[in-house]
C-alpha cells in the first residue's frame, strides 16, 4: 500500500502567522476568532471577522485549507456567542470547524449540514466508542487524537475509528487529559475549557530573586529556575512541586513534544494529518517549525528518509520529548 499524503496542519495566532505558515509550506492552517470561543484566547491574538475572511481568501488562493477552532465549552446561558462563531466560520468559507462541545456539535450538524466537522483534542476521544459517539451522532470527519496514545495504539485505533486521524507532531503538551483539567481555574478562575486560556497572562508573574527566576500563577509559586536553567510555561501541569518532602516535576517536565523522527511510523499507521501546536507563539516559531516539517515530509516522500533537523532550541524547556508516542510515558 502506498502510504498516504500526510497533511501538515499549522497554527496561526495572527494573520501574519497565517501568511507565514502558508509560505513555509503548510497544507492547512488553523486559527480562531478573537474571543473565548477558541482555546488560545490570549490578548492581541486571533482573528476578527474581516481578518478571518482575508486569511481564508489568502489560503484558498494558494490552494491551502483553513480550519476554524471553536473548541471551548460555552458557558451556561451564553451559547449564542459560540453559535455565531460557527455560523460565521461557515459563511466565510472555512474548510472545517474544530469543535469539542456536544451541544455545539449538535448545533453545527443540524444548522450547517454541509460544514465539515473536526473533533477537537479538547473532547479527548481516545477510544473507538467515544469516536463512534461523535461519528454516528454528528458525522465528524476527523478527530484530533489526545496525546496519550502510543504509535502502536494509534495504528490500531485508525483502523477502527472510521474517521480521519490527526495527531500532534510538535509543541507544548500538557500531561493531563485535554478538556478535563481545571487546575488553571482552580488557581485563577479561568481555564482552557470555559475561557480558552491556561495560566492566563494577567495571573502570571515573573521575578528575579537572588539570581533565580520565580514564576507565579495566581497566588502560588509554580517554579524557581536557577541562573541558566531552561524554563517552561507557568502552567500548573509543568510546576515544580513538593510531594512526600521531595521537590520534583511531579506531573511533567517542561519539555516540548517533537515526533519528527516518528513521521515514517505515523504515516505507516494511517494517520491523515499532523498538527503543529502553538497559536500563542510568534511568526518566527511558525516559520521555523513548519519549514522543518515540510522539508522532512518532502524528503521522506522522495527518499524514504530524512536528515534530522534539530528544533530543541525552540521547545519548551529547550528540551524535546516523544511524550506518550513511545511506551513508558505513563
Amino acid at each position: 500500500m502506498t502510504p498516504r499524503y500526510l497533511e501538515l496542519v499549522c497554527p496561526a495566532g495572527t494573520p501574519a502567522a497565517l501568511r507565514t505558515a502558508v509560505e513555509a509550506g503548510a497544507d492547512t492552517v488553523y486559527c480562531g476568532f478573537r474571543d473565548e470561543t477558541n482555546a488560545r484566547n490570549y490578548p492581541g491574538l486571533n482573528f476578527d471577522r474581516e481578518e478571518m475572511a482575508e486569511g481564508i481568501r489568502f489560503a484558498h488562493a494558494h490552494g491551502r485549507h483553513v480550519l476554524v477552532a471553536i473548541n471551548t465549552f460555552p458557558r451556561p446561558g451564553q451559547v449564542a456567542l459560540w453559535h455565531r462563531a460557527i455560523d460565521d466560520a461557515a459563511a466565510l468559507g472555512a474548510n472545517a470547524v474544530i469543535l469539542a462541545d456536544i451541544g455545539l456539535l449538535d448545533y453545527a450538524s443540524g444548522h450547517h449540514p454541509g460544514l465539515r466537522l473536526h473533533l477537537s483534542v479538547q473532547a479527548a476521544a481516545s477510544n473507538t466508542l467515544s469516536l463512534a459517539f461523535y461519528r454516528e451522532r454528528f458525522g465528524i470527519r476527523r478527530a484530533v487524537l489526545p496525546r496519550v496514545l502510543t504509535v502502536k495504539e494509534i495504528g490500531a485505533l485508525v483502523e477502527r475509528m472510521g474517521v480521519e486521524a490527526e495527531v500532534f507532531a510538535f509543541g507544548s503538551l500538557g500531561t493531563m487529559t485535554e478538556g478535563r483539567c481545571i487546575l488553571s481555574s482552580y488557581l485563577t478562575g479561568r481555564s482552557p475549557s470555559s475561557d480558552g486560556v491556561c495560566a492566563p497572562a494577567e495571573h502570571v508573574s515573573l521575578s528575579e530573586e537572588d539570581g533565580e527566576m520565580v514564576m507565579r500563577l495566581g497566588p502560588l509559586t509554580m517554579n524557581r529556575f536557577g541562573r541558566d536553567e531552561p524554563a517552561g510555561y507557568p502552567t500548573p501541569c509543568k510546576a515544580r512541586l513538593v510531594a512526600r518532602g521531595i521537590p520534583s516535576y511531579l506531573f511533567d517536565e517542561p519539555v516540548g513534544l517533537n515526533m519528527i523522527e516518528l513521521l515514517p511510523e505515523l504515516k505507516a499507521a494511517g494517520v491523515t494529518a499532523l498538527k503543529i501546536e502553538g497559536r500563542q507563539r510568534s511568526r518566527a516559531y511558525v516559520a521555523q517549525v513548519v519549514r522543518a516539517f515540510r522539508a522532512t515530509l518532502d524528503a521522506l516522500d522522495r527518499d524514504g528518509r530524512a536528515p534530522r533537523i534539530d528544533l530543541s532550541a525552540i521547545a519548551e524547556g529547550s528540551k524535546e520529548t516523544l511524550g506518550a508516542y513511545r511506551k513508558g510515558w505513563r
Binding site: P74, D101, I102, D106, N127, S130, F133
Partner: peptide
C-alpha cells in the same frame, strides 16, 4: 466518559461530573 454515554444512549442513565456538561445545549 463519553464512550460510556454512547453505550447508555437510549436507556435512562446518569451523567457524572467528569463528563463535560458545560451548557444547556449539551
Amino acid at each position: 466518559d463519553v464512550s460510556c454515554v454512547h453505550v447508555l444512549a437510549g436507556r435512562p442513565h446518569a451523567i457524572g461530573p467528569l463528563v463535560n456538561v458545560f451548557n444547556e445545549g449539551t
